[in-house]
Design a protein around this nucleic acid. Structure first.
Lengths: 205, 205
DNA sequence: AGCGCTCCTATCCTTCTGGATAGGTCATTA
DNA sequence: TAATGACCTATCCAGAAGGATAGGAGCGCT
């Protein structure tokens, strides 16, 4: 079994490799970014499984996934991600990814997932599908916000004015201002710029 | 040597513990969030070193660091972070953190850093301090901005008002407004929120 | 029915933003 | 010396943002 772990966090890379190695008969390679990963596959391939960090230099969303899949030496390609975004996971699986692995997973479960994916199955953690209706439930910040407030916050993270957000959501401007205000209290922001930055830092949108 | 690793990414937690355990004589505990970490320290303390993930539920910026430092059982508290933000690192160290550990660090370096911090030193990766002054010269966006505009832009990325920025830089508010306006033209922003988001996306500050 | 919650709308008012314009210093350079 | 460019200050003004407050519709729960 030959797998490649590509992640810009050396800490995760090194420890993960050590763990996988101690857990079974795997030959493991690593890379710190997408280009490095592509090179490794070309030079040392083929690999049974390639794990790509979603937030790694060069990835550019799902572009990186597709580039890797285009190579001969990558039999199965899965995504690894820090924040559990349901929409990204769905898009990845639809694009033919072997799986979507949130970093909140335990190391033991990951080893099982790796075996699963190497044998050709598609892996998604169960509590991911179960949350079906609300993809953002998993997020600490998102839990305290109502649906409308989330929609307004999304507008803020795009640098829109209250008027623009009102138009987008088919609401009146005063309504948006209300949501904006209550939303500030909940996330601890003093103005719209801080709210947008906080949302981005938390990995929302 | 007794250390606590608090991170919401089970994957990192598990593998890191396994690695540290295999590398030396450390007793390691873990927690998935800040409250869990506080409980562990109270119940199983004291710890020689506590590693807190900056983007973990309950952290709320540096509040979590201070809460942990307030406990008797946490001798040294360090921050662990995925994105290497210089300003956060500085603020953390100023608040008395034992260190700032980016996840891009290698596992081997981390083990060394842990020993270093346990013996009472403050740890920061070297390429972190060096990058401060020069990093911004090389940046595409930064080249077109004057020094003042950069300082003002930095204020924007912290969600400050013009008045606050003026106070920080010992300038008058109208002057800030001028820089803000010209800065919008240069980076292609329609308002301060967009300017802040663009700067962050470009990796500035 | 009554209660509590979320959501939508509205008005009043103060402060902040953003744009336009104008005039000043200072250092560098032709 | 004159010109240029970066930087600081200022005033005017329209519009946006933000806070306070209040009322009403819809929904689930007791």
């Amino acid at each position: 079994m030959k797998i490649l772990v590509a992640d810009d966090h050396g800490l995760l890379r090194d420890t993960l490799v050590a763990f996988v190695a101690s857990a079974g008969d795997a030959e493991t390679h690593t890379a710190p970014d997408l280009n490095g990963a592509l090179d490794v596959v070309v030079d040392h391939g083929p690999f049974d499984l390639v794990l790509l960090d979603y937030n790694m230099p060069g990835m550019n969303g799902l572009d990186g996934l597709e580039k890797m899949q285009a190579l001969e030496g990558a039999h199965h390609v899965a995504l690894l991600s820090g924040e559990a975004s349901r929409s990204v996971a769905e898009a990845a699986l639809e694009a033919g990814a072997a799986g979507f692995v949130p970093k909140t997973l335990s190391a033991k479960s990951l080893v099982n997932a790796i075996r699963f994916m190497v044998s050709g199955e598609q892996y998604v953690p169960v509590d991911f599908l179960a949350s079906g209706t609300e993809r953002k439930d998993s997020h600490p910040l998102a839990r305290t916000l109502t649906m409308r407030e989330m929609q307004v916050l999304e507008g803020l993270t795009e640098g829109k004015s209250n008027k623009e957000i009102a138009r987008d959501l088919n609401l009146s401007e005063p309504t948006i201002k209300l949501h904006v205000k209550t939303l500030y209290r909940k996330v601890g922001a003093a103005n719209r710029t801080q709210a947008a930055l906080i949302a981005r830092e938390q990995g929302l949108f």
